[in-house]
């Protein structure tokens, strides 16, 4: 197993008096693609919100050897943990170009921005053609590309993606999964949180199944995809 980049133990979080995550533990190795799958309301988004520092939580979150539990979101972002949130959460009244620049808001190496912008426009040519268009006026697939491009502009070390495939055409999902494979080869670690179990396990190295705030299964992605329980519950076979 590769060295752990993220090691989560006994993580608990919720909203008000309502607990959502109960004693969650998992780890992600450097340069891995890890899928976290589960049905609606399993706690997947809550987990990402806690890891990103926008939801208070208890337990241990060690990232690159440092305890980062309950650090503020900007401090977590500055360490290279970047979240691509569910529903894209673009800045809809800002241009595509400005959205991408917001991805690089905390970067100090501003001299490299043009090169990185060129790179994301090469990966997603449609964004290059629409760089002056308001992000909120694009189609769902284009918005997801913009959201991913914005995340890449942050130069993430660990990219956490929430429901990337939601509402997208299969061809777009395939294109985005190819991008994930490509950025992993450049050293980015990926945590892919998905309801679309088939897509997630197709490109992941390992996977976890989250149910009612607990990790109930874990293993190699292929093993999970072949697990009869997972097949029955999530793949409908």
């Amino acid at each position: 197993m590769s060295e752990s980049l993220l090691d989560v133990r006994n993580l608990q979080a919720g909203y008000g008096e309502m607990p959502v995550l109960k004693d969650v533990a998992f780890h992600i190795g450097e340069r891995e693609i890890v899928a976290l799958v589960g049905s609606n309301a399993a706690g997947k988004t809550t987990l990402l919100r806690a890891l990103s520092g926008v939801l208070s939580h208890s337990g241990s979150v060690r990232y690159a050897g440092e305890e980062i539990a309950n650090l503020p979101s900007d401090a977590i972002f500055a360490r290279g943990l970047v979240q691509l949130p569910e529903g894209r959460q673009l800045f809809g009244d800002m241009s595509v170009h400005d959205n991408l620049l917001m991805g690089a808001y905390r970067r100090s190496d501003r001299g490299n921005l043009d090169a990185d912008l060129g790179e994301v426009y090469r990966i997603f040519p449609v964004l290059g053609q629409r760089k002056r268009q308001l992000a909120g006026s694009m189609s769902g697939g284009e918005q997801q590309m913009c959201a991913m491009a914005r995340a890449l502009m942050a130069r993430p070390r660990l990219l956490m993606i929430d429901e990337m495939s939601l509402g997208l055409a299969p061809a777009i999902v395939d294109q985005l999964l190819d991008v994930l494979q490509s950025i992993r080869s450049r050293g980015v670690t990926v945590l892919l949180v998905e309801q679309d179990v088939y897509s997630a396990l197709r490109i992941a190295d390992r996977g976890y199944v989250l149910e009612h705030g607990h990790i109930v299964r874990e293993g190699r992605a292929r093993e999970l995809a072949d697990d009869p329980e997972v097949k029955r519950a999530y793949l409908g076979v």
Binding site: G53, Q89, D93, M102, R150
Partner: peptide, 10 residues
Amino acid sequence: QNLVAARLYG
């Protein structure tokens, strides 16, 4: 425009 996204991006 989007406080949550702004926080997520530093």
